[in-house]
């Protein structure tokens, strides 16, 4: 166990459930013989920004895909706003997903749609009842938030990598989510664009008071966005503390990330 890191106990998670945006208890997930998550526990309070740090292939992306219901855990509980994601019905899961934004590592913009259509898609699919004028306003507002209102009628292929990331973020924002899950938000971007995305994430957090769960191994991103850092080692929540305290930690498994 790391010397100074705070280890979150399972009973703490249960008792704090009402105050938590996300509570994960005894989560197990395997792919064949590859045990990716082993008794993983984590609680995220409303408005908090938590970064999950881990090596490539350590199961970070699997973790957030389990949270949003894209993957089913083998065992354990994932509660988002108190609702167990793996047990609720499809309609209820869709309603829950409207409150949770997901920024994909590859942006996942629909190639065959314009930027406007990409942003309108979640609004229409979640049956949000608004007029076309209201939809247009929401699209432009989300694009304004990421500083790309002029790209509204462009196709994703016409945009640079950084712009695509911003548009993906705008699509995530359009439903005004209470939680945003970021999967490697700065991967594949140059340092300057990466910094712009980090600033944007912080601005969004401040403006909308969202809860954020960020998956990353970019230490700049981790340092600048985290209220708390969770280190994922061998499928477990190995350490859980603030950036400053973890940086001082002498445990070799923690230290390797800060060297």
């Amino acid at each position: 166990m790391p010397e100074e890191a705070t280890i979150v106990q399972s009973d703490q998670l249960i008792s704090a459930d009402a105050a938590n945006a996300v509570s994960i208890l005894h989560l197990y997930k395997s792919f064949g013989n590859n045990h990716v998550l082993i008794d993983f526990n984590l609680a995220i309070k409303k408005g908090e920004s938590v970064v999950v740090l881990g090596k490539s292939g350590s199961g970070k992306s699997v973790l957030i895909k389990c949270i949003i219901g894209l993957l089913k855990p083998d065992k354990g509980t994932i509660a988002v706003f108190g609702k167990n994601v793996s047990e609720i019905k499809e309609e209820e899961l869709d309603k829950l997903r409207a409150k949770v934004g997901f920024l994909f590592q590859s942006n996942a913009l629909y190639d065959s749609m314009t930027v406007r259509e990409n942003l309108e898609f979640p609004l229409r699919r979640h049956w949000i009842k608004v007029s076309q004028a209201e939809v247009n306003k929401m699209v432009l507002e989300a694009l304004d938030d990421v500083g790309l209102a002029h790209t509204v009628d462009m196709m994703p292929v016409e945009l640079s990598g950084g712009m695509r990331k911003r548009i993906a973020l705008a699509r995530t924002l359009i439903l005004k989510p209470e939680i945003i899950l970021y999967d490697e938000p700065t991967t594949g971007l140059d340092p300057i664009t990466g910094k712009e995305i980090i600033d944007l994430m912080n601005d969004i957090q401040e403006k909308y008071n969202t809860t954020s769960l960020i998956i990353s191994h970019d230490m700049n991103c981790v340092r600048m966005t985290s209220d708390r850092v969770v280190i994922l080692v061998e499928g477990k929540c190995y350490a859980n503390d603030t950036w400053d305290r973890l940086q001082q930690n002498k445990d070799p498994k923690v230290k390797q990330f800060f060297e």
Binding site: L70, R97, F104, S106, L109, Y110, D111, F121, R125
Partner: peptide, 17 residues
């Protein structure tokens, strides 16, 4: 290509089967 660029997952997250 939609599968490998996670567009299918993005659809699911957007309330679409």
């Amino acid at each position: 290509s939609m599968k490998v660029t996670e567009q299918i997952d993005a659809m699911e997250v957007s309330g679409t089967n």
